[in-house]
């Protein structure tokens, strides 16, 4: 891939938990506007790799480059660099993690006020715009507990988008949802991909990976096992390990 057009690069990123190497020297380049789906068995390090990108896990070694700004993670990362990084990278979690004591609207507006310095009016306007986009403007004044899981996840997506990120990370966004509720979240993600957002999606949703992603990455044991256009990886996997994993998720 052409270095100049890549918006995100990981170089030899390594993360060890209590002697267990969760991410074992992963390098990855993602182009602007690319949608990358990451699959793999649990414990393969895919979530940890994702969490290394916005430094929710600080890698033991390796470099992370977002839009030309390098972060060497082996030293201490300064608070300024961290803020800069997180402004550009949004994240959506498996468990939504909305703030339960705030209304849907406050959930989306507060970070804009605090991180981007927007006024309350400005922030609320942007929040309502995004709520409309995810089809939830009628839930603005509801508390998260009064929303279904699928609705909460769509609010969480709106909350991340409100900070105008350049890259969106999704950590198994539909794994905690009933299949039906998962669909409405996937629809929002599909729409987001169509707008040209750069997305990295850790998922078990093979159909989504096959139809929306530009590239499919298979991880195992903390490494990238293989990657390529989704159809190619799904139809003609190169590694026995990939074949085993794919048959396990396809033949159910």
């Amino acid at each position: 891939m052409n270095q100049a057009e890549s918006i995100l690069s990981l170089r030899d990123v390594e993360k060890t938990f209590a002697g267990h190497c969760a991410v074992d020297g992963v390098s990855l380049d993602v182009a602007r506007g690319e949608v990358v789906a990451v699959i793999g068995p649990s414990g393969s390090g895919k979530s940890t790799m994702l969490r290394c990108i916005n430094l929710l896990e600080v890698p033991d070694r390796g470099t992370i480059t977002v839009d030309g700004t390098d972060l060497d993670t082996s030293g201490t990362v300064s608070a300024r660099d961290l803020t800069q990084l997180r402004r550009r990278v949004g994240m959506v979690f498996q468990s939504f993690n909305l703030f339960p004591h705030m209304t849907v609207l406050r959930n989306i507006s507060l970070p804009q006020e605090r991180v981007l310095g927007r006024s309350r009016d400005e922030a609320d306007r942007r929040s309502m715009e995004l709520l409309e986009r995810v089809g939830l403007q009628q839930k603005a004044d509801a508390y998260p507990a009064k929303c279904s899981g699928g609705q909460q996840q769509r609010v969480a997506i709106a909350r991340a988008l409100a900070l105008d990120p350049e890259i969106m990370l999704f950590d198994e966004p539909t794994s905690a949802l009933d299949p039906e509720l998962g669909l409405e979240v996937l629809a929002v993600m599909r729409q987001l991909a169509d707008t040209g957002m750069t997305m990295i999606v850790v998922t078990h949703e093979i159909h989504f990976a096959a139809t929306v992603a530009d590239r499919l990455i298979v991880m195992a044991d903390g490494r990238i096992l293989e990657q390529g256009p989704p159809q190619q990886v799904l139809d003609d996997p190169q590694h026995a390990r990939t074949r085993t994993f794919l048959s396990a998720i396809k033949d159910r």
Partner: peptide, 18 residues
């Protein structure tokens, strides 16, 4: 307080005091 609350705040770039 669930760990996810701290993580969400971190990922959004909220300061420690906020």
């Amino acid at each position: 307080v669930p760990k996810g609350q701290f993580e969400a705040a971190d990922a959004l770039g909220l300061s420690r005091s906020t």
